[in-house]
């Protein structure tokens, strides 16, 4: 296509606009503009979220509705940070405990499992692996009621332990790490073995550093899953001091939803910040993570 533009120019001088049309670059520009429009449409709700959180209670209900606040105020933020009105600060602590616990335990168990199922020999290894993998075939919804009963028997209701325990291991994570360890040359393992390293030492000093790329990708998805989880925490937790952030948002919507929706918006902004930070820091890993997870078949 660039060639056509070059040859035409030799015969008749074209204006930059004509050249742009002839060269076919205009399709790219149109695509670009369409995408720009749709990304604005995708982003539009967030603009409402952000601006509404700076409104006053009277402002947010006034008609006709306006995007921008008539008077900018931080009242809504002060409202949700006030421990007597909403337990957002405590929920922050709870969410951080549960999320970091889940991420750390999944990273450890998945990388260990990946190494063990890929490289170490013991009877029944493959049966165990396929069993672990097959548990993903049963939807969580099917386990919801009986798992609640089991947690009740274990006295883990209404505690953050009860939220954390079922997600200590991730069969998907183990599967991913196993695939990844297969890509690490076996010779590394054999050489370390001959040098007299124990299996745990090999895991700690060789496998763990080498699986870092897949672990950072896994960490993001586990973080998002644990941080945004709703159904299981809803079933397990009910005391207000124990709630995680998504649950607190729902409580706030019930409490402030009628007249103080700006408080729900302010709470929503505050709740969205941790995943946003994680996303911005690890942005590159998201796309690479999807490539690494081998989901492309």
């Amino acid at each position: 296509m660039a060639g056509t533009a070059e040859t035409t120019r030799l015969h008749t001088p074209l204006s930059p606009f004509q050249r742009w049309i002839v060269s076919g670059k205009w399709t790219k520009t149109v695509v670009f503009l369409i995408l720009a429009f749709f990304s604005f449409a995708m982003f539009y709700p967030f603009i409402w979220l952000l601006f509404s959180s700076f409104k006053t209670g009277a402002d947010i209900l006034s008609l006709p509705v306006t995007l921008l606040p008539k008077r900018w105020t931080l009242d809504a933020y002060l409202m949700v940070m006030d421990p007597t009105r909403a337990n957002l600060p405590i929920a922050y602590v709870n969410s951080i405990i549960v999320t970091s616990g889940t991420v750390i335990s999944v990273l450890i168990t998945a990388s260990m499992g990946g190494f063990i199922f890929a490289r170490l020999e013991f009877p029944g290894r493959d049966y165990l692996f396929y069993f672990v993998l097959s548990t993903t075939m049963v939807p969580f919804l099917t386990l919801l009621i009986p798992l609640y009963i089991v947690m009740r028997e274990l006295n883990l209701l209404n505690s953050l332990w009860g939220v954390w325990v079922p997600s200590m291991f991730s069969s998907f994570g183990i599967f991913l790490c196993r695939q990844f360890v297969y890509g690490i040359p076996r010779e590394l393992y054999d050489a370390a073995k001959i040098d007299g390293s124990g299996d745990f030492g090999i895991y700690r000093n060789i496998i763990l550093p080498l699986t870092k790329p897949i672990l950072s990708a896994l960490a993001i998805f586990v973080f998002l899953g644990a941080f945004n989880a709703y159904l299981w925490p809803l079933v397990i937790l009910n005391e207000e001091k124990k709630l995680t952030l998504p649950l607190i948002i729902a409580r706030m919507a019930n409490r402030f939803g009628g007249t103080d929706y700006q408080a729900v918006m302010a709470g929503s902004v505050l709740v969205s910040i941790p995943p946003l930070i994680v996303f911005l820091i690890f942005q590159k890993n998201f796309v690479r993570g999807i490539a690494l997870t081998g989901l492309k078949g």
Partner: peptide, 11 residues
């Protein structure tokens, strides 16, 4: 995708 679904729903 990264926004908590609860936030999106109330929004």
């Amino acid at each position: 995708v990264i926004t908590p679904l609860v936030v999106s729903l109330y929004l």
